[in-house]
């Protein structure tokens, strides 16, 4: 399958007062056309920073992309000038943000916020953009008459629908959904997620879904990348990650999910906290919390190994187990 997005060795840092926070470290990722990738990890793992990096929206200062390549449809996004990036943002790559409460401009009508995006990328009159924006509203399940209303007149779920309408208004090739359901009620979560999946299928959009909810990933995604301290630690198809879990961190994540069928009284959370990204361990960044860490893990950062076709793991222990076998 043709790749729509290829990220190679992406490194993003935040610099402030002599402190360097390594938000994303040597990240590698590929996404095929039409695929959905779930990017899973704890808060602060660098998921949003990666997405903002793809959009070219890392707040600078303090954020700097210090290295790597983001190849989208054959061109390196990091090498494009501002004008070219503006024509890609919103048109070819668009993003759904985490908090619908604050993502919409409170003093503009929702309709005009959708129409704005259409006006920027498609040569059309104001009236045409308004018509299309009304269609988009209806597509996400909001009556067209509400075009002239302001964000404060909508509920959280409705606002997120508006944000989705903005993101999809120009039929993007790639959709970055940054925890699109985190701020919503569980019942609304399902609705919004269904909507995203439906529209994605209709428009043949590739998607990176950022979340920390493995349940959502299982429902929506074809591939999964597990992110920890700015790195991808495990990457593979849905089936590979869920049924042949390899990395100790991924195992820990699954261990933290309550299971109704099992009779275990307590969950088994991962002990400890994520390392301070301004002071990462010399070796494997998961080593301090890992239950099966060895001496080598402390001093040396493991490389990605392909354990089966398309299933990559960044851990020394994996090779070892196979050796034992």
């Amino acid at each position: 399958m043709e790749n729509i997005l290829e990220i190679k060795d992406l490194t993003i840092q935040y610099r402030a007062d002599n402190r360097i926070v390594e938000a994303v470290n040597q990240l590698n990722l590929t996404l095929g056309k039409g695929e959905s990738l779930g990017l899973v990890g704890e808060t602060g793992a660098g998921k949003t920073t990666t997405a903002l990096g793809i959009m070219g929206l890392i707040p600078d200062p303090p954020g700097i992309v210090t290295g790597g390549e983001i190849i989208f449809e054959g061109e390196d996004l990091l090498k494009q000038n501002k004008k070219r990036m503006r024509s890609i943002r919103g048109k070819k790559i668009s993003m759904i943000f985490q908090d619908p409460m604050t993502s919409l401009n409170p003093v503009m009508t929702v309709g005009s916020q959708i129409a704005e995006s259409i006006r920027i990328h498609e040569r059309c009159s104001k009236a045409e953009a308004a018509t299309k924006a009304t269609e988009m509203l209806e597509l996400v399940g909001i009556p067209g008459e509400r075009y002239g209303e302001y964000p404060h007149q909508f509920s959280g779920g409705m606002k997120q629908r508006v944000v989705i309408a903005i993101a999809l208004s120009c039929n993007p090739e790639l959709l970055l959904a940054d925890e699109p359901t985190t701020a919503l009620d569980v019942t609304i979560q399902a609705q919004v997620l269904d909507l995203i999946v439906k529209l994605k299928k209709e428009k043949q959009t590739s998607m990176i879904l950022i979340t920390h909810d493995l349940g959502i990933v299982a429902e929506v995604c074809d591939k999964v990348a597990i992110m920890y301290a700015g790195e991808i630690v495990e990457y593979g198809s849905l089936e590979q990650i869920y049924n042949h879990t390899c990395h100790p961190y991924t195992k820990g994540l699954f261990g933290s999910i309550p299971d109704l069928d099992s009779h275990v009284k307590r969950l088994s959370p991962i002990p400890g906290l994520m390392p301070d990204p301004a002071d990462l361990p010399a070796g494997c960044s998961f080593c301090p919390r890992c239950t099966c860490a060895c001496e080598r893990c402390e001093s040396e950062n493991p490389q990605m190994i392909e354990v089966e076709t398309g299933h990559f793991v960044k851990c020394f222990q994996i090779g070892k187990e196979e050796e034992h076998v």
Binding site: M55, L57, R86, S87, I88, R89, G90, K91, S94, M95, F97, D99, T102, S103, L104, N105, P106, Q113, E116, S117, I120, H121, V163, I166
Partner: peptide, 11 residues
Amino acid sequence: DYIRTARAKGQ
């Protein structure tokens, strides 16, 4: 956040 949204539109 809404300023980021506006930038994300390519404005």
